[in-house]
Amino acid sequence: MDMQQTKGNRAIVIWLYTGVAMIIVQVLLGGITRLTGSGLSITEWKPILGALPPMNEAAWQEAFAKYQEIGQSKYINSHFTLTDFKWIYFWEWLHRNWARLIGVVFFVPFIYFIVKKTIDRSMIWPMVVLFILGGLQGGIGWIMVQSGLNEEDLYVSHIRLAGHFIAALGLLWYVLWFALKLSLPASHRVEAPVLRRLSGWVLGILVVQLIYGAFMAGLHAALAASTWPSINGYAVPPGMFAQGGFWADITHNPITIHFIHRGLAYLLIILIAVWYLRSYKVPQLQGARAAALFTVLLQVFLGVLTVLNANVKIPLAFALAHQFVGMGLLMVMVWAHFLTLPLRR
């Protein structure tokens, strides 16, 4: 599929970039939901009826009673009053309803564009795939929430959290790529196989880094070492292989995850610096080039600030800024990768 920009596509392009912005907000709301411990406050999955919050005092008490049955309430938030519960309920409710709004924003204009014949046949199947990805993302989210709705687990599984997060970023990548195909003509691209391979490596490592970012959030692993540039005074901290197995350590041991997350950040700086230097004389890449270097440096800076201020709990503002810039870096590198797509002869 090689779609070029036309006047008729302008409304579709605006629609798609609006979707990109809404997905970014949704991921940030997910971050707030996680860091405020709000993700388990709604214990039921009601795709339609769940759009409304409890409408009276009795309904609120019922929702609160259901929350009080799970381990998180019993062992961490046993002191919660109904007012406290309403606060965490709000974030999870907003997160779910923003997802519903995204569905409406994508679906209603899609039908309108079909009726008005603004969308040609080459666009229909990619949009169907987009809706499937969106539906799967909602399903993954509920599977994640279910992992914490019991008396044993105090939080959702960080593995499922990472799956939910990466699925959201995959949706963001897909919509952005689709929008770029419609908004950027071939004259903006350049044949650069070496740079394309290098940006592909950056994207691959960045995806792994973002997975580890989700592990960091899910396990509150920033609290394992609130020092920089050392990790609790070490370059390689002790206790990294204390879980009884390599895979267990790299997926469940907070200090190991912390070490890997930092190491991947340094590796990304090096790779993006190399890409930056190699793309110096390519006019089509100058915007992406500057944005990539600035974004990765800002991302590392915010990561350092988050770690240094993570003494008792993770600082919400720094953590959200770190997550936001991480998404920005992903989008910049997707843009850079797109600009080196092979040109049709």
Rank of each mutant, 00 (worst) to 15 (best):
S183V: 07
R160I: 11
T43W: 08
T6V: 08
I270M: 13
S78P: 07
N150K: 06
I42R: 03
T227I: 02
H220F: 08
L203S: 03
M1C: 06
Q4W: 01
A162C: 04
G37M: 03
H79K: 10
N56Y: 03
Q26A: 11
A186G: 00
Y234R: 01
Q323A: 10
A162D: 06
G200L: 05
V207T: 15
A167G: 14
I12S: 03
L101I: 13
G287V: 14
W201Y: 14
V156F: 04
E44N: 04
R262Q: 14
G148N: 07
V312G: 03
I205C: 03
L210T: 15
S73K: 01
M333E: 12
I255P: 12
G244H: 10
P126F: 12
M331P: 12
S183D: 13
K66T: 10
L172V: 14
H158S: 12
A319E: 11
H188R: 13
H220T: 05
R189H: 07
G31Y: 05
G303Y: 12
V236Q: 00
V13G: 01
G204K: 06
L29R: 00
I24T: 01
P47H: 00
N311I: 15
H258L: 06
I12Q: 09
Y155H: 12
G37T: 01
F324H: 05
G141T: 07
R197E: 04
G200M: 07
Q26V: 04
I70Q: 07
V145K: 03
L203Q: 02
A162Q: 02
A51Y: 10
K46F: 10
